[in-house]
Design a protein around this nucleic acid. Structure first.
Lengths: 334, 334
DNA sequence: ATTATTTGCGAAAACGTTTTCGTAAATTTT
DNA sequence: AAAATTTACGAAAACGTTTTCGCAAATAAT
């Protein structure tokens, strides 16, 4: 069913029907009503491709994320989708699996106008950002969330990572830790580095000397990380505190401690970034820094939509920071 | 950058360039190479809307799910996205939040050809399925996964829910339970009913008399469920075993047991469907039926793509069942 | 050396909208 | 009552592809 047939049914012109459907003032109320009624009767839906082609607008955004089986990103998407649905937008999902190559190929594909805007949380391997610059050059609005990069000017929605790094480290120190390991995923991830900076500065302020053997670079692979952590925890001078900069690493630490029979929190205390509902049900319950993932998704989407709809509008802050919260549980108890 | 400008640069016709890009045999190898080189140089990308409009194909599928902050669905999407990326398809996500109305409006929107196919896991409130029938009538291939409905003919990918219901119930009985509650989310959800049927039949086979006060209908709301479960567990004749038919209910049970100081597994044993990585880290570790979510996503996507690409092909089974696995942990220990 | 066939390309017609512009008829203003 | 304006609609030109046809030139077959 297309406009041509539709128009014929009503003995109207294609343009009249089109205008009526878009509630144009050029069409009388009477015919508008007639058209609307007929549209309902025929279950007429405009062809999105014809419409997008003509209007040069897709009413679609893309969300590019490194992984989805991670409550943080799942919740962020939930937030995005909520706003998108309100605004009548469609949401395309692309997973990069932490692979820059995939990130590059995805952004290339998105340059052709398929989407009106892009939200991205960069992969942990991303250093060169020319592919993202490419999007901007093609006039496609871009918003970063959580995993941002300083190298490009665009709205960025994050949590207070530096501050959270401080809070987590202070929390461990207050509970008696003196030798705190920082588990990181990548040296070129802004969130990792900011959290690390908070950790380093807090050690300094507490006159604990910084030992770079305690900055543990982990990988994306759980089994590999287990090996790395086993090596760390089997040392005779093993750390007495662990600050996991991402959820997965906190869990891996738990698993390794179980295997090595290391008691949390007696032998070692753990705090980690996490959005797990089960944090409080773990054995022992896990002290966490929780990011407001859903709100981040909503906020990022809102900003993207104003970017799309009010091009030229200058009131959008480059950085939006939403605070995360520290929840103290048994894994850090004295 | 469009074909017209592109063609002018090479002093070729639009059609020649278009054909060259699609590797047509009508074009000589020499000019094909020239066109391909130029395409790379100019970073030419075909306009997806013009192409879709002309070809009546969108290279896009939709995934409609009730929620995303649930590891099962997150993993399923991961599987779908993997296959889609291999096949060069795009993936649109729609969340219904267990709301039929949203499901109906989403499927209406999808009827206009925006997507080449739809994958859906129906909301727990869905009973009338005319909106899904509508998709089929519009010639849009449809595949169900996990939450299927018998009322419509279409490929369905599920786990062996009936069998899993049996396994879980038997496991509880073997470990000494005699009064097993079944926590259900919805009376009109096939998975819920099949799991329930397995439970009922197993009780019968073990000569345990069935008590319909032990079939607990829960809601989507965590707080409400807490109230319901508290009421159940505060009874003097409270159950000695819980079979949670979805992940969220197992966790709520844990939370309520903590609040009421009921000891798992001594006072009550729990088994639940779940894809949580943290199942083994809970206190106590949770015995689970784990569904191969990722594989379900992959399989459902694969089937959808053959449906799309080989229309008329009859070799697709109406039902594909992928087994789930029972993992025994401490929450059901004797 | 003709005729038949193949090769390589271009013109033009879709695909289904949206939007500009033109223009009768209806209405308002002088 | 004539002129000016407004109202309500239609014709037609985009939007950027893909694909069918047509047709020269090149090659192959007689």
């Amino acid at each position: 069913m297309n406009l041509k047939q539709f128009a014929k049914e009503l003995n109207l012109s294609i343009s009249a029907v089109s205008k009526a459907l878009r509630d144009s003032h050029e069409i009388s109320e009477k015919t508008k009503q007639m058209v609307l009624d007929k549209a309902r009767e025929l279950n007429y839906q405009v062809n999105p491709f014809a419409s997008s082609l003509r209007k040069q607008k897709s009413k679609t955004i893309a969300v590019v994320i490194p992984e989805i089986d991670n409550n943080f990103f799942a919740l962020a998407i939930k937030g995005v989708e909520m706003i998108a649905q309100e605004k009548g937008y469609h949401v395309l999902i692309y997973l990069t699996h932490e692979d820059v190559q995939k990130e590059v190929s995805v952004t290339k594909i998105l340059q052709n106008g398929r989407v009106d805007g892009v939200m991205i949380s960069v992969s942990s391997q991303t250093t060169d950002i020319s592919h993202l610059q490419g999007l901007k050059e093609n006039g496609i609005p871009l918003v970063f969330f959580d995993r941002v990069t300083e190298k490009i000017t665009a709205p960025k929605i994050t949590t207070d990572d530096y501050n959270s790094g401080i809070k987590a480290t202070e929390h461990l120190i207050e509970n008696g830790c003196e030798k705190i390991a920082f588990l990181s995923v990548s040296e070129n991830l802004s969130i990792s580095n900011k959290r690390l900076a908070g950790y380093v500065d807090t050690l300094k302020r507490n006159k604990i000397n910084y030992d770079d053997k305690l900055i543990i670079r982990c990988s994306q692979n759980i089994e590999e990380n287990k090996k790395i952590l086993k090596k760390l925890l089997e040392k005779k001078i093993k750390p007495d505190g662990i600050f996991a900069s991402v959820e997965s690493l906190a869990l891996t630490t738990y698993e390794v401690c179980n295997e090595l029979n290391i008691k949390i929190p007696d032998d070692i205390k753990i705090i980690g970034f996490s959005n797990l509902r089960t944090a409080s049900l773990l054995s022992p319950s896990l002290s966490t820094i929780t990011q407001p993932a859903y709100e981040i998704g909503r906020e990022a989407a809102s900003i993207l939509f104003t970017l799309i709809e009010k091009s030229g509008y200058n009131g959008i802050p480059e950085n939006t920071v939403i605070k995360s919260t520290l929840t103290e549980r048994k894994s850090t108890r004295k």
